[in-house]
Design a protein around this nucleic acid. Structure first.
Lengths: 212, 212
DNA sequence: ATACGTTTCAAACATACGTTTGGAGACAAG
DNA sequence: CTTGTCTCCAAACGTATGTTTGAAACGTAT
């Protein structure tokens, strides 16, 4: 049988390196040498570099979206009325807590997501939408019930704005933490920042729509 | 003397291609062949590919930050009280209007900025901060006066959140416009989206800070 | 007209990359 | 023991990249 963990070692290493340096800037040689496996292992187990990238996302997103779907089931069963706070709170607690054994994991993932979304060709963007779009739509419907005064199209854009805030902030977390620390002599964790993000997003999502 | 416009033709082409496909994914051969200049021209005129990237940013940011500084002078001289709407309005009108002859130019720049910020090593991020940090600080001070109830640190983070919304949205503009068009049968321009961004950001920036 | 600095150009250089290959080794089934 | 399958590995392949080179072309000033 296979040497135990070759596939996982590749995924673990690739995840970190992709987040650190980007997809194009991370070579298979860098991944395999750091993971302690042979260069050919990536093409043998995954087929290509691009398939490896997709596998990295899949490994993170599948449990996340499953957990999110479960939480939404729970919310609907309980009959709690939708508010922006509860819905966004669910997402943020989930994003930070899907891998509680490794608090850095969430930050890595958001950096990956930032990389994926800034890929202009939109290849990954399309893949993510295709595979996880359903849960995303469901989330948006709950939000719509929470802010009925905001039109669906307006809300669509506000969700995109929110996504931007989250991904951008968490994908540049280290630089921003450094600035914040030197300017305000206060070190903030990813959880701290998420806590600050929440009221910002709530304020933005339920802001009054100008008459136009 | 030089064939007129070699440098500018390179900059024009590089700007578009970098925004379309990213820095690493855009080769000097792609730039020079599309620009109709010799491959060696980049290294002759700029020194290296990285220097070309910096030059592209410089050409856009220098007039923008100068215009922003002038607008802030104007604002201070007029004695108008600071509000989030006026300050963010200045920035957004400037971003869309710095190159009025080419409305697509602003979108290109934000895609570039998105690329730069998602570069994890932060090389460009540092360069941008170093060269244009002063205007940025000044902008933040005005915002602080507009929302005195938000602590400086809280505001710092909210500005970062806002930056994320702007850059993320405008850098992925085409994909988002396509989704919006197919879902809502309505085509939106960059200016339309900026108009929707503004109340979202204002709502976020002046949202109540939780007791904590 | 000549000389000179600048710019352009085709070609080559060195290197790094993703991928492929052919064989060696391990293990289970017949 | 033999066969077959799966995994690992060193090496090589083909290609694309950023950069450098040396000569040709150009415009200007002497």
């Amino acid at each position: 049988m296979a040497q135990p963990g070759t596939v996982d070692r590749i995924l673990d290493t690739a995840e970190v390196l992709f987040a650190q340096k980007g997809f194009a800037e991370t070579s298979l040689r860098a991944i395999t040498s750091k993971a302690g496996v042979n260069l050919a292992a990536v093409n043998y187990h995954f087929g290509s570099k691009e398939a490896l990238i997709q596998a990295v996302f899949e490994r993170f997103l599948t449990p996340f979206s499953a957990a999110l779907a479960a939480k939404l089931d729970e919310l609907e069963a309980s009959g709690t009325p939708d508010t922006p706070e509860t819905i966004l709170g669910i997402v943020s607690r989930l994003a930070l807590g899907t891998h509680p054994q490794d608090p850095q994991r969430a930050a890595i993932f958001f950096r990956l997501a930032g990389q994926a979304y800034s890929q202009p060709q939109g290849h990954l963007r399309q893949y993510l939408n295709q595979h996880y779009g359903a849960v995303f739509k469901r989330l948006q419907e709950h939000l719509q019930r929470a802010v009925p005064d905001v039109s669906p199209m307006e809300l669509f854009w506000r969700v995109q704005f929110s996504l931007g805030s989250v991904i951008f902030t968490l994908s540049g977390l280290e630089s921003l933490q450094a600035i914040s620390k030197s300017d305000f002599k206060l070190e903030l964790s990813a959880a701290d920042i998420t806590q600050r993000l929440l009221p910002f997003l709530v304020g933005g999502i339920q802001a009054p729509v100008p008459a136009q």
